[in-house]
Design a protein around this nucleic acid. Sequence first.
DNA 1: TAGTATCGGTACGCCCCCGTTCCGTTACTC
DNA 2: GAGTAACGGAACGGGGGCGTACCGATACTA
Lengths: 198, 198
Amino acid sequence: MSTRLEAPRRAPGRPRSLEADEAILEATVDVFAEVGLEALTMEGVAARAGVSKNTVYRRFPNKLDLVVSAVRCYTNVGAPPPDTGTTRGDVQALVDDLVAIVTATPMGRMLPILVAARTRTPELDLAYSEIVADKRARSAAVVRRGITRGDFRTDVDIDLVVDAFVSPVFYRLLVTNAPLDEAFRTAVVDAALRAFGA
Amino acid sequence: MSTRLEAPRRAPGRPRSLEADEAILEATVDVFAEVGLEALTMEGVAARAGVSKNTVYRRFPNKLDLVVSAVRCYTNVGAPPPDTGTTRGDVQALVDDLVAIVTATPMGRMLPILVAARTRTPELDLAYSEIVADKRARSAAVVRRGITRGDFRTDVDIDLVVDAFVSPVFYRLLVTNAPLDEAFRTAVVDAALRAFGA
DNA sequence: TAGTATCGGTACGCCCCCGTTCCGTTACTC
DNA sequence: GAGTAACGGAACGGGGGCGTACCGATACTA
């Protein structure tokens, strides 16, 4: 009983390479965003990561597990809603955050692929749905606070308000590839406040 | 010179089966929407169409050509913009049309796949862009007419107005899968008119 | 009737990927 | 130094798709 239930000791043998961990996940995101789920190959990921295929299989039992892990890894769920003091400021922060995520993180490159792949891969759909639900909950909290402040009408459908300032970003990103510049972002907030404001 | 440049005579030999033509295109849309571009196989399309692989290759030289042809085939580009007499009626018609297309035609099933595949397949991106441009031109014409009617402010950005009543539909279709019922469609039109109306 | 191009079916060579297994080497613990 | 488990590299069997080629049968023209 001497070693049982003691503090977690390091396992014997050569430890896993942390650099390999990170390189594999990054390579997975890159390849996934570039070629999609079906055309992503374990050999391709290993080569991109500068790692042997053996090293990938030692961490992830199969392709789907690898991709789901990579998607989950690169999302910051659980962030608190913004609180700038004004409803306009909060909504603007939500829009700016969203644009920042889809333009400056791997999530933006993965999103088109995720949208397509989730319809036929339950495991991916689950991870994707959790992320979307988290982001929408943040937005809904801001809208609810705006209602109590008197900045939104009391009878608005919260989902519709969230749709109003979120959907144009996704639409330009996924459908038209129109720019997401500052003029656009402020115009989106402006339109939402005018459409649902008191 | 007797037969040259005459009216196009029927070619000798057994004619192509029109049923096969149609079955192949329908099967391509189905398989494409279900499994995506990479996982779509010529064997799978032929089997779904009830046709030999030989018959598919006799019409389309390769997989990409087959898919692009199928996408192009199932779109009604060139339809005139609606004219109901009122700006609200026109915008509502545009929204209802869009929802009808994405819920009741093969285009709706293909859209998520197209969004993902176009980023890495120039031929698909071209076909997709032509469709989007055609639909947006229809919407822009309605908005312009609304401005001259005095129903939209004269200083609005037409692209932003189109985004306002189109993007929620795409967002719910591609991102949240929320319902596209009548209450939603009228609420979208309502919000757009309130946000950009005079 | 002769000629032609389609039809479905089958098979082929080629290439690629999956997931596993084996090496010899390397890094870390006891 | 002994033991252990990771590492890179290479190979394997199995499976599957691509695009081509051939077959006898069929449909249509001249």
